[in-house]
C-alpha cells in the first residue's frame, strides 16, 4: 500500500487535470454548435456536452477508456479491428528489433572493449547514428527494404526498432565489460586465465547489472521504433498505423485508444524485463 499510494495520488491528479482540460478544449465546439442552432447553453449543460462528443478535441478519460475496452474486447482478437491484433503486430516487430538491437549492441560492445581500432572507428558513428531523427530515416528504411525485395512488413519495422534499441545496450555493455577493477584482472592473471576465460568468467558476469539497466531503456526504444515504423502513409497494420488513421480520418477516439494500448504494451514489456532482471539477480546471489 505504501508504494501504491503515491502512484495513485499522482494518477488521480492527472485524471482530474485531464477532465478539466477536456472541458476547456471541447467547450468551443459546444458553444459553436449552440450558436448555430440558435440556442443558449448554461455552464453545466456545456460541461455535460463536452464529455460525450463524437469527435472531441481532447476526449475525456472515460471515453478513451470505453474506446480502448471496445477495441480490446468487442471483437475476436484476430479481427483487424481489434487492438489486440494490432498490438500483437507491433509487439512482434518490437521483439524482433529488440533481439536484433541486443545482438548488435552486445556484439559491438565486445568489439569496442577488445579493440582500440574499433573503439576509435566505430564508436563515433554509433553516437552520430542516434542524432539522426528516426522519423526522417524510417520512410527510407521502409522504401529501401521493399526495393531490396523484402515483402515482409515486419523486417523494416524491426530494423528501425533495432536502430533505436542497440544504442543503450551498446553504452551499457561497454561500461559493464570494463567494470572489473585492476585487482580482479590481476587475480585472473595470476591464474594464467585465457582471454576467453577472462571474458566468460569475469567481464560478462560483471556487466550484467549494466546490461539489465540498458535493457529497460532499449525495450522502450524498440517499441517507439516499431511504432514509428508503422507511421509512414499506407501502413494499415499495428498500433502506429491505428494512431495515424485515427488522426487522418478525424477519429480522435481511435487515436487515443491506440495510444493507450501502446502505453499498456510498453508497461507490460518493461514489467517483463524487470522480472527477468530480478530472476537474474537472484541467480547471481543478490540479497533481494
Amino acid at each position: 500500500m505504501k508504494r501504491v499510494l503515491p502512484v495513485l495520488t499522482v494518477l488521480c491528479g492527472i485524471v482530474a487535470l485531464w477532465y478539466l482540460a477536456s472541458v476547456w478544449l471541447n467547450a468551443t465546439w459546444v458553444y459553436d454548435q449552440a450558436a448555430r442552432d440558435g440556442r443558449s447553453v448554461t455552464f453545466s449543460q456545456m460541461v455535460v456536452e463536452t464529455q460525450s462528443q463524437e469527435r472531441p478535441l481532447l476526449p475525456p478519460p472515460h471515453q478513451v477508456g470505453a474506446e480502448l475496452w471496445k477495441g480490446l474486447t468487442a471483437q475476436a482478437v484476430t479481427s483487424k479491428r481489434s487492438l489486440v491484433w494490432h498490438g500483437y503486430k507491433t509487439f512482434e516487430a518490437t521483439m524482433a528489433g529488440f533481439a536484433l538491437g541486443i545482438a548488435l549492441g552486445v556484439g559491438l560492445a565486445v568489439a569496442i572493449v577488445y579493440s582500440r581500432t574499433v573503439d576509435r572507428s566505430v564508436m563515433p558513428w554509433a553516437i552520430i547514428s542516434q542524432t539522426v531523427p528516426i522519423v526522417a530515416l524510417a520512410p527510407m528504411i521502409i522504401v529501401l527494404s521493399s526495393k531490396m525485395g523484402i515483402d515482409s512488413k515486419l523486417v523494416p519495422k524491426a530494423i528501425i526498432a533495432a536502430y533505436l534499441s542497440f544504442f543503450p545496450v551498446l553504452v551499457g555493455m561497454i561500461k559493464g565489460l570494463r567494470s572489473p577493477d585492476a585487482m580482479q584482472l590481476d587475480l585472473m592473471r595470476t591464474w594464467n586465465a585465457s582471454g576467453l576465460q577472462n571474458f566468460l568468467v569475469l567481464r560478462l558476469p560483471s556487466s550484467m547489472p549494466y546490461f539489465f539497466a540498458s535493457l529497460k531503456v532499449a525495450i522502450a526504444a524498440a517499441l517507439v521504433g516499431a511504432i514509428v515504423g508503422e507511421l509512414p502513409s499506407g501502413a494499415t497494420v499495428g498500433l502506429g498505423a491505428r494512431m495515424l488513421q485515427g488522426s487522418q480520418y478525424g477519429r480522435p477516439l481511435d487515436m487515443w485508444a491506440a495510444l493507450f494500448a501502446a502505453a499498456l504494451l510498453a508497461g507490460v514489456l518493461i514489467l517483463i524485463v524487470g522480472q527477468l532482471e530480478r530472476l537474474a539477480r537472484k541467480r547471481m546471489g543478490a540479497a533481494g
Binding site: 585487482m183 580482479q184 587475480l187 558476469p205 550484467m208 547471481m284 546471489g285 543478490a286
Partner: peptide, 13 residues
C-alpha cells in the same frame, strides 16, 4: 604461487 590481495576480491555472483 597463489596470490592473496588486500581485498578478498570474491565474485559476488
Amino acid at each position: 604461487y597463489g596470490y592473496v590481495f588486500q581485498a578478498a576480491g570474491l565474485y559476488p555472483w
